[in-house]
Amino acid sequence: MMKASLALFSALFAAACAHDAPEAEAAAPPRVATSFYPLTYFVETIAGNELELFTPVPAQADPALWKPDTDALLALQEVDLILLNGAGFEQWVSKVSLPESRVIYTADSFRETWIGHDEESHSHGGLAPHSHGAINGHTWVDPVLAERQAEAIFAALLERWPDRRAAFEAGLASLRAQLAEQERLWRDLCSRLRTAAVLASHPSYDYPIRSCGARIENFDLDPAAPLSAAELDEILLRAGEGVPRLMLWESEPQAATRAVLLEHGIESVVFETGEALDDAELAQGRNFQTLMLDNLKRLAEALGN
């Protein structure tokens, strides 16, 4: 009788273990979606391999203007957490259905410091004047704001997966150190930026330039397109008297554009925002931090530091 009971117990135990084993194997890491590369880098640095990361935006697409297809939206509805920049950067978000309880707008914590575009508003039907998405969303370019976004990511991860606290804290410390290095380099440039005439081909640098107490003139120029005479006139009109005169570009402008601007005393500086880094660039060892340090090095050289 005793032997029979033991045999039955052993069989049940073995069956239970056999049942548990696939479950343990099947425990996949939490899935987290990010809307563009800088956030991906922040999450990777904070969480390491603790999470499965997913960015629905193709590497070559502009994450601000990307339009999600059905597969991307279905995938976003399934993930455990969606990390967005916010501040109006991802224009597609207001047109799609997302599980709001799993969405974190990382720039929301400094909403009061957002910068608006000078965009024309309109009114109709007796309603108050309004415009369509007039917030500058390039918050991560400023390392101080980037750190606050990193903190928002850390808080969101910790709230959902508190058992991974140690890994997340170590990752956040590492990211803070990197952003502190960027901030130090910006601070070193601030005095020169305040006396320079800083122009931008696109309104991507408002936040760090404001942090420096400097001014910036924004244009809407395509680096891949030739500079028209009207655009050049407008640049010269608004360039101001500062020295040196710099035009910041998100990517390398055409050689002719660079030359024309230089003829008028305006040096072109490539300052990439890192919105989209493709696999080839990542394979070459480039990442958000190296990209920003390279940017700051070029800016420092242009400012004569």
């Binding site: 000078d118 024309e120 508003s121 309109h122 009114s123 109709h124 039907g125 004047p129």
Partner: peptide, 10 residues
């Protein structure tokens, strides 16, 4: 300056 008022016929 900065605002366009649209007709109710829009």
């Amino acid at each position: 300056a900065g605002n366009v008022a649209l007709s109710g016929a829009l």
